[in-house]
């Protein structure tokens, strides 16, 4: 048998083998489980973050510094330290409600319902985005779309479909490194499938046994030249948070 006759058959087998290896790897990876592991990595019982919110609206860059204390996914308290205009602003999230206190007015405002959809302090995030109170693995059904190379890393691309039709973003896409269970990128879509927002997770560091991104870059893709960067300067997990931080009595000067 000549080599010319053998080669096409061999090449075919090789291609089939490659496809079966790729598909079997795709099948091997349990998308839902991977998402759960990602949640497990990101969410702690309690968390303290001191960071900077860098809001670039295309014409002007504003930097807000804040300290945040979070308990699970349902309770959080943030205190803005600068710039002078925002200094002393406090936000308290308990369940589905968000209270905001501004020292200039010396009043607390309940941001609920449709107000949650407004842009938070002119950023690319809405209050709703900011106070997302569900783990992705609980709110979405994940399926593996395939693999992609991202900055030299082979990442799994998960397609997430919301369980509940009340979920704000009905579909999302997440680029996850299956090796260390970290999300590198996320895209959020409208019901129609139109891409609305993208989030890049960067500068991962191992902090207290967890891989945590130091930088998150939010982009509202319907707007031009805007982005909001969230830089975490200090991250502490499982910290003891005083009970008064999650009480409305904290919302005063």
């Amino acid at each position: 048998m000549s080599l010319k006759k053998i080669f096409p058959g061999f090449a075919g087998i090789l291609i089939l083998f490659s496809i079966s290896v790729v598909s079997s790897r795709a099948e091997e990876l349990d998308a839902q489980k991977l998402l759960e592991q990602v949640d497990e990595n990101l969410w702690a019982d309690t968390k303290f973050i001191s960071g900077r919110l860098i809001i670039d609206n295309g014409r002007k860059v504003r930097i807000l510094t804040q300290d945040s204390w979070m308990e699970g996914v349902t309770r959080s308290y943030s205190h803005y330290k600068s710039p002078p205009r925002e200094k002393g602003t406090k936000m308290l999230k308990i369940g589905g409600k968000l209270w905001m206190y501004t020292p200039r007015t010396d009043r607390k405002i309940l941001i609920a319902g449709h107000l949650l959809r407004q842009s938070m302090m002119g950023s690319d995030l809405s209050y709703e985005d900011m106070m997302e109170d569900h783990k992705l693995s609980r709110a979405y059904a994940a399926s593996l779309e395939g693999y992609e190379d991202m900055e030299g890393t082979r990442v799994a691309v998960l397609h997430l479909v919301a369980h509940d039709k009340k979920t704000t973003y009905q579909t999302r896409k997440a680029w996850i490194n299956p090796e260390n269970k970290t999300v590198l990128k996320e895209e959020r879509f409208a019901k129609s499938g139109k891409k609305l927002k993208s989030i890049l997770f960067k500068d991962y560091e191992k902090i207290e046994g967890r891989m945590f991104p130091r930088t998150m870059i939010f982009k509202d893709l319907l707007k031009e030249n805007t982005q909001t960067t969230y830089k975490f300067d200090v991250i502490e997990f499982n910290v003891k948070i005083p009970a008064r931080y999650f009480s409305q009595s904290i919302l005063k000067r």
């Binding site: 039709k165 009340k166 979920t167 704000t168 009905q170 409208a190 019901k191 139109k194």
Partner: peptide, 10 residues
């Protein structure tokens, strides 16, 4: 937003 609160865009 649709009736359920899901965001949509076209």
């Amino acid at each position: 937003r649709d009736k359920s609160g899901a965001v949509d865009a076209r």
